[in-house]
Write a protein that binds this DNA or RNA. Structure first.
Length: 223
DNA sequence: AACTTATCCAACCGCCGCTAC
DNA sequence: AGTAGCGGCGGTTGGATAAGT
């Protein structure tokens, strides 16, 4: 493996620690759990392996289709793509893409060389400058693209009356219109999106698994 | 059976932006 | 204004295993 494998005992200690103190404060986790691991290792182990409701095994056909479509829209934004696939982690999606889909799609592209893409890449267009979202927008994007992204994002900001906050109207309409436009709203995706949305509305959507605001912003950004 | 090659995926690394001081 | 510490992300690595010769 790419590092030192986690033992059952370490897993147990980490689980116990998270159950006791909750997620977050990762810098304290190694100490609290009595683990000889760095904060990042602990976080990764929890997110990719120990967290409840993690789905293992092969990807369903619907999931694969979603990955392909979302990748066309979002690029290598694995955490966002994973957020749309309940139970799947960003690492899972990334690995699956690198092992299966990238080759498959490359071969396809080679076949219909020069063929037009059936889905247009959504361009950035910011509305909400919420800190975490803005941060995530620029991550994993080459510097040159970041500059372009920022420029186009800033040019389309909208603010409310006092100029402090961005106006975000009719979130559901926006997101579904956008997804619908790209042919991404199907029965499958709609189900889990609404499920996640309800959680957020109930104040239970704080985990990284589903962040409605992020999805909304991201789809908006890429218009 | 023994060896080589390909594939999978858990873990690590480096970077980024935000926050607090 | 500068910077250290943090959480989070995508890219990469490399050990385990499967498949091929």
């Amino acid at each position: 493996m790419g590092g030192v494998a986690w033992t059952e005992e370490e897993d147990h200690l980490l689980k116990k620690c998270i159950q006791q103190y909750g997620e977050g404060k990762w810098h304290r986790v190694p100490l609290l759990a009595g683990l000889n691991r760095c904060r990042k290792s602990c976080r990764l182990r929890w997110l990719n392996y120990l967290r409840p409701n993690i789905k293992r095994g092969n990807f369903a056909e619907e999931e694969v289709e979603m990955i392909i479509k979302l990748h066309k829209l979002l690029g290598n934004r694995w955490s966002l793509i994973a957020g749309r696939l309940p139970g799947r982690t960003a690492n899972d999606v990334k690995n699956y893409w690198n092992c299966h889909l990238s080759k498959r799609l490359n071969a396809q592209e080679a076949e219909d060389k020069g063929g037009s893409r059936d889905v247009e890449v959504i361009r950035p267009q910011a509305r909400n400058m919420g800190s975490s979202s803005v941060k995530r927008r620029s991550e994993g994007v080459p510097q040159r693209e970041k500059a372009v992204e920022q420029e186009s994002s800033m040019s389309s900001l909208t603010f409310d009356a006092d100029g402090q906050n961005q106006v975000v109207e009719s979130q559901e309409e926006n997101i579904y219109a956008c997804l619908d436009q790209q042919g991404i709203v199907n029965e499958y995706s709609m189900d889990f999106q609404l499920e996640g949305f309800e959680d957020v509305m109930k104040g239970e959507g704080s985990s990284s698994q589903w962040d409605w605001g992020d999805l909304l912003l991201d789809m908006d950004l890429y218009k």
